[in-house]
Amino acid sequence: MVRVWPDAVEVGYGALRRLRDIVYSVGESPLFISGPGKSREICESLGIRPLVVDESTSKAAEGVAAAALSCDSIVAIGGGKVIDVGKMSAERAGLPMVSVPTVLSGDGIASPIAVIDGTSHKVSVPRALVCDLEIISGAPKRHNTAGAGDLLSNISSSWDWRRAHELGRDKDFNGLAAAMSETGALALVSEEPDLRCSDTLRALCQGLLLSGAAMALAGSSKPSSGSEHKISHAMDRLFRGPGLHGEQTALAAVFTTYLQSNSHRESMISFMRKLGLPTKPADLGLSFANFARCVAEAPSTRPDRFTILEEVAPAGERLLGLIEEAFTHGSLAGQSL
């Protein structure tokens, strides 16, 4: 049976106090890896001498896998790049992996996907996860906020996947996986829109865990990556990523949920505004015309995945009109198409 959830999950303030117990329940001879900055300092404060990783590349993953030849587990302490390298190297070495995020910038903390050299690779879900909210609260606010944006965009992606199934354009739909993805996002929206609030941070971590589990259950990223991720990929391709990943997907979701007439759109946007996420293209330095280029380019980034963009297929002046409506007159109301 495919694992969709870590066997051990510790989330809370002071969770690092249980790190050694959890790590040694997974393996007796772990290899610790970290980033070169804060995560390395955390390791050293715990008496751990980690192997330092500063890039999410195949070369880095190969180096970690080679260093783990005499070990029986890999423990990744750090941000998204470190955790991705940890997951990929563990997959190559055939070892269990423990994820210890120091920032909540995306759902990679426990997902079955590792981004290496800019490409997504299927990997195993971490065997365990330790998320100390005290450490997370000290991470750069913008990065945690981007993680919230990545989670909120599941409101769009889960809708896309369900709609593709209804139209007979997706035969692999899993209702439970779609519900898990959406539920994590809606649970976050129900909290105080302030990442200094402990309940909000906990909801963010748990929502990102649910997002990863939904992907593992589905066997693909479909529950958490739809039309809004296609637009974000197009932003990367055309404008070299004007924002952080979660900022881009959240902004794109403002538009895609408009096309979807998504019933959760108003509460999503209200939460985004209070949290400080971008809600219009200008917030990421894009004009309406440039955003339109991204929307037009988006279908080609994942041509095998049917979304609202393929159903509506807006182009030309109609596309510009829809963008203007979505980000001005339709900012808090949907539209039936």
Rank of each mutant, 00 (worst) to 15 (best):
S267Q: 11
A15W: 09
E28Y: 00
N174W: 00
L95D: 05
A315Q: 12
G285W: 09
R240H: 14
S56F: 02
P281I: 14
A76Q: 06
L275Y: 06
Q248G: 14
L275F: 07
P314K: 02
E91Q: 12
N144M: 07
G330R: 06
A177W: 00
V64D: 01
L188Y: 00
A214L: 06
L337M: 08
A61F: 02
C43M: 13
R237P: 02
D199Y: 10
G334S: 07
V125F: 06
E91A: 13
G80K: 07
R20I: 00
V11G: 08
F255T: 12
S181E: 01
L286R: 09
E311G: 01
S73L: 05
I136W: 03
A216H: 09
L209H: 12
F327P: 05
E310I: 02
L204G: 07
Q248W: 02
S190Y: 00
V115T: 07
M235D: 05
V75K: 02
L337E: 04
S267D: 11
L204D: 09
A139R: 06
P36V: 10
M97L: 11
R18H: 12
A333M: 12
L332G: 11
A146H: 08
G276P: 06
S220Q: 02
A234I: 06
H143D: 10
Q260Y: 04
I135A: 01
C197S: 14
T200I: 08
H121N: 11
R265P: 04
A66Q: 09
S105V: 14
V254L: 05
A8L: 14
L201W: 04
V9H: 09
E166V: 11
E247P: 10
T249R: 01
E325R: 14
G37L: 11
C205Y: 08
A178T: 03
L46R: 11
D160S: 10
D194M: 01
L204E: 08
S263H: 13
A289R: 15
L51G: 02
G207Q: 14
I231G: 02
E55F: 01
F32Q: 06
D194N: 06
G86A: 02
V64Y: 01
D72E: 07
I74D: 03
P314D: 03
I33V: 10
P36A: 10
V52H: 04
K59D: 01
F173M: 01
L186F: 00
C197F: 06
L259C: 07
A179Q: 03
S58T: 12
A148V: 12
E311M: 11
